[in-house]
Design a protein around this nucleic acid. Structure first.
Lengths: 220, 220
DNA sequence: GCATTACGCTACGTCTCGTAGCGAAAGCTC
DNA sequence: GAGCTTTCGCTACGAGACGTAGCGTAATGC
């Protein structure tokens, strides 16, 4: 994550996937410390100010860097916030609790915990809203946030099929659609519960949700 | 917040539920035409510019009113967009198609159709994001958008229980929680599918989703 | 008529934006 | 070390949006 070296040439905006090019360019390298400080400052500003009142100038001051440094690394507010929020999802993992139900409950609870953070709440939804009009931004979100979640669904699904808890799907086409459906149901429900209903997705709720989801998937 | 007229009398910001006070105040009444023009212009601007680049000055120009008129009626961008988007959900209704599955599919499809509109996509999520830091705004969204959807869930549920398609729940407490759960699952899944996955919530998807949901709810 | 309120218009200070230019700092290669 | 390259902090700038104030005028009720 995070660049500091860059994509190809001098290093266009953002990080995306830095190739860690062996031909380390000449010149003064970008400060990795500054990157960390900027992203941390962005999350801090999200908590204090929220999305709409967050300004890049303020973030620069909090991070102790010049405003121009921000503009050299990120194209704008959207990209910066995506990267700042994406780091929150780094620790997301799939625990092996022995049963599909327990595994799902664990993951959903992790997701809910992250989403309960004010910096995730105000930041993530705002960039998703912006992404409706910006394909590059949506792709950035997909790569750094969504895919990481989706991988957990795939792993959990494979594990459950190995256990015999879910029927194996022969048709890869329909299997892919099923994964997409599950993913939208899980992530969507947690997001809606947390942001729109503004109620905590606590253990009790997660248990109820998991039960409905699994019963619906199993009985086919 | 702000106040140029009084607190109660004249009818504070927004329309929310204007009491249509019988004691119609003296003085020149507010133009209802202007209200409609402003909200329509707001939706138009959402389509053309998106949330972040939408300015109140531009909306005023599109609507053919003075900028000051906007500020006299709405506290800011958030409130204005909520009202503009809320009108899109006016036509939401629960069709009686004979079975619970068909009813749900109908409602979900209606919801998905509205959410596919660019003015709904970019506007709704943005205000939801802002509402994480503004209780009054969240309440405004709840009253003008969410509750209208939730009522459909309640109606559909009652109808299904009358048909015997769902077990009646004796405990009102747990019944309420179940409705909340269903609501978060339905609305959340559609929103996530449309905005994050950026795939259309078409008939095929809605059928798959409804089947999983109903199987999960019925087998208890 | 008179009081009251809404409207359109203009003008204003303030803030943020995003960029440009500069000298200094920090790496690498030779 | 010398020399090259890139980044950094800093300052300054025009452009644009914000939200408000003030004015004269229009539309209602008494």
């Amino acid at each position: 994550m995070i660049s500091l070296t860059a994509a190809q040439e001098p290093s266009v905006y953002g990080q995306g996937m830095q190739s860690r090019s062996p031909a380390s360019r000449t010149g003064r390298p970008r400060s990795a410390t500054a990157d960390a400080a900027i992203l941390a400052a962005t999350r801090e500003a999200l908590v204090d100010l929220g999305w709409s009142k967050l300004t890049l100038g303020d973030v620069a001051t909090r991070a102790g860097v010049a405003k121009t440094t921000l503009y050299r690394r990120w194209a704008g507010k959207n990209e910066l916030v995506v990267d700042a929020v994406a780091e929150l999802f780094d620790e997301l993992e799939l625990p092996d609790r022995g049963s599909l139900a327990a595994d799902i409950e664990g993951v959903v609870l992790q997701f809910a915990t992250i989403l309960a953070l004010p910096e995730a709440k105000s930041g993530l939804m705002a960039v998703v809203a912006e992404a409706t009009r910006d394909d590059a931004l949506r792709e950035r979100i997909r790569a750094s946030v969504v895919d990481r979640q989706k991988r957990l669904v795939l792993e959990g699904r494979a594990r459950a099929q190995a256990r015999g808890e879910l029927p194996p799907e022969p048709d890869p086409e329909s299997a892919s659609r099923t994964v997409d459906l599950i993913f939208d149901m899980v992530a969507g429900a947690v997001v809606h519960r947390t942001l729109v209903s503004a109620e905590p997705a606590d253990e009790e709720w997660v248990r109820s949700f998991t039960r409905v989801l699994l019963l619906g998937l199993a009985s086919r």
